[in-house]
Simulated scan of single mutants.
Amino acid sequence: MGSSRLPVLGMLVWVLHFVLMRPEVTMYILVYVDDIILVSSSVAATNRLVLALSSDFAVKDLGKLHYFLGLEVTYPQDGLALSQQKYSQDLLRRAGMLECKAATTPMSSTETISATDGTLLSADGATDYRSLVGALQYLTITRPDISYAVNRVCQYLHAPREPHLTAVKRILRYAIHGDIFVFFGPNLIAWSARKQATVSRSSTEAEYKAVADATAELIWVVDAILTY
């Protein structure tokens, strides 16, 4: 048994986790408030545990996991995929940056930031800064490409200044990209990260647009392979 604190949208939440490892079964359980995620190598063991819990608590089996603490889960043929599309949209909305212009990189290659340059943020501004940085830390679960930039802005949590906030906003502007990856077997042959041309009113609409863009890219790649 253990516990973890996760900075979900800048708020620290406690998640309890339990691990059972025996020769016949391996089981992992995550508990957050009244939500439970159960991963097990044995369907029979899973059913026995759910039945045992039902004898003491009101338990409802919701089937396969689809959403938990900002993580969206889908099930392609070869496993499962995690994304944080809705989480990133909520983060941009909270920062008032839904209409912002996208950045092509998470950090500037020409500008540097330090602990002493620029004006100190106000007390409220510093609180907002720490909250945004904490939320970005959680976003690195599915966006490892922003890990270095997030680590840099984490270094100024004790006394954030205007240039540090500008750097955080650049990371957010980069995070709005819609990423497309095309594989030929195990090899990545095409990749794109760009802002969608129109503003989506929901994460579902944004996902449909991303699928359409990916389909167009895939058609072009297939045509290029067949041609050459």
Rank of each mutant, 00 (worst) to 15 (best):
Lys101Met: 10
Lys86Glu: 13
Ser114Gly: 15
Leu136Thr: 01
Met107Gly: 03
Leu157Lys: 09
Tyr138Phe: 12
Thr116Glu: 13
Ala126Gly: 14
Ser114Gln: 07
Ala102Gly: 15
Asn151Thr: 07
Ser114Ala: 06
Leu136Cys: 05
Ser122Pro: 12
Asp128Leu: 10
Ala81Cys: 14
Ser131His: 10
Ala159Arg: 13
Ala126Val: 10
Ala102Glu: 08
Leu165Pro: 01
Ala159Gln: 13
Val153Ala: 03
Val153Ser: 02
Leu120Ser: 13
Leu121Thr: 06
Thr116Asp: 14
Thr142Glu: 05
Ser109Ile: 12
Ala149Ile: 07
Glu99Pro: 00
Leu165Tyr: 07
Asp90Ala: 10
Thr116Arg: 11
Asn151His: 14
Ile141Gln: 01
Leu98Ser: 09
Gln85Phe: 03
His158Asp: 11
Leu139Phe: 01
Gln155Pro: 08
Ala103His: 09
Gly118Phe: 06
Leu91Ser: 04
Leu157Ala: 14
Gly96His: 09
Thr127His: 11
Leu80Val: 12
Pro163Glu: 07
Asp128Ser: 14
Ser88Lys: 14
Tyr87Trp: 07
Ala115Thr: 11
Ser83Ala: 13
Arg130Phe: 01
Ile113Lys: 03
Lys101Arg: 15
Gly125Cys: 05
Leu91Lys: 02
Leu91Glu: 03
Ala159Leu: 15
Thr105Pro: 07
Met107Leu: 15
Leu165Asp: 02
Met97Lys: 14
Leu136Ser: 04
Arg94Thr: 08
Val168Asp: 00
Glu111His: 14
Tyr129Thr: 00
Ala135Phe: 02
Val168Lys: 01
Leu132Pro: 01
Leu165Glu: 02
Asp128Glu: 15
Tyr138Asp: 02
Gly134Pro: 00
Pro106Lys: 07
Pro106Tyr: 04
Thr104Lys: 15
Arg143Met: 05
Ser108Val: 07
Ser147Met: 13
Thr140Trp: 08
His164Gly: 03
Thr116Trp: 07
Pro163Arg: 04
Val153Gln: 00
Ala159Ile: 04
Ile113Tyr: 05
Lys86His: 11
Gln84Tyr: 05
Leu91Asp: 03
Gln84Glu: 06
His158Ser: 15
Ala149Thr: 06
Asn151Ala: 09
Cys100Tyr: 09
Asp124Asn: 12
Pro163Gly: 08
Leu80Tyr: 15
Ala167Lys: 03
Lys101Phe: 10
Thr110Gln: 14
Tyr138Cys: 08
Ser83Pro: 04
Pro106His: 09
Thr104Asp: 13
Ala102His: 09
Asp117Phe: 07
Ala126Phe: 07
Val133Ser: 01
Asp117Lys: 11
Cys154Leu: 06
Thr110Asp: 12
Val168Phe: 00
Thr104Leu: 13
Tyr156Lys: 05
Ala102Lys: 04
Thr105His: 06
Asp145Thr: 09
